[in-house]
Design a protein around this nucleic acid. Structure first.
Lengths: 124, 124
DNA sequence: CGGCATCCTCACCGATACTG
DNA sequence: CAGTATCGGTGAGGATGCCG
């Protein structure tokens, strides 16, 4: 984090490792996807689609592809009709789960804190 | 994280607390700003500008304003000429530092892992 | 079932110029 | 010094339709 040079890793450009992490997990739906794969293990595409309301097929596909390219999930295609595709965390992918939990914990703290301190009111 | 309802906290809408955290720290320059404030304490605007190459005045101002609204930094304006403004972490802001460190650690692991496993080559 | 191809919108970010 | 104000590019994200 101390250095301020542009680095590259895979598809990502970043100045510090925090930024790199955020580029891997920072997609709008990626935390939720990783959460589901971490919690219940392997999922089919349709299961993820059901588990994540409001996500469109396009976005689900796109985010899954990026996570795959970044090496945090595996994609297993069965040669059957109708198609069957299963997604699961890689070894590397499992290591991100504690980080996500940490983020989640802070978010909850923040939620409470802002309720107590009246941060939650928006002046529209 | 288990629930999938839309919530609101302050300026943010989110489905899970991970998302909320990412909305607070997820701006392009926010991690770096928080890092500097966490490491060396109070900074003047110009000091931050110098410490963060490439950032524009506009972006620095904007990100600082958002961090302030979210309650993680304080803004102290001295009534002097020329103007003097100091930024520092709030109590709440300090609690985000370990989370950032965790993100940074994972990023470094990821960096090594992808070098070892040839993830770092991009097919342009 | 699990996609891909298009088209579109809008928030994010940057460059530049001006100011109390 | 520490900002605003304005304009404009760009790409992430979304809606819709077709396909093996």
């Amino acid at each position: 984090m101390a250095e301020c040079q542009v680095k590259k890793s895979g598809r990502h450009e970043y100045y510090c490792s925090v930024e790199l992490t955020l580029q891997v997990i920072g997609g709008k739906w990626k935390p939720i996807i990783l959460y589901h794969l971490g919690r219940n293990g392997t999922h089919r595409f349709g299961e993820l689609k059901l588990a994540i309301p409001n996500i469109t097929q396009k976005m689900l596909t796109q985010q899954l592809r990026e996570l795959e390219k970044d090496g945090v999930i595996d994609r297993l295609v069965y040669a059957v009709v109708p198609p069957k595709v299963e997604y699961s965390l890689t070894e590397l992918g499992h290591t991100i789960i504690p980080v996500l939990q940490h983020l989640g914990q802070w978010g909850q703290q923040y939620e409470e804190y802002s309720r107590e301190h009246g941060l939650s009111e928006v002046t529209v």
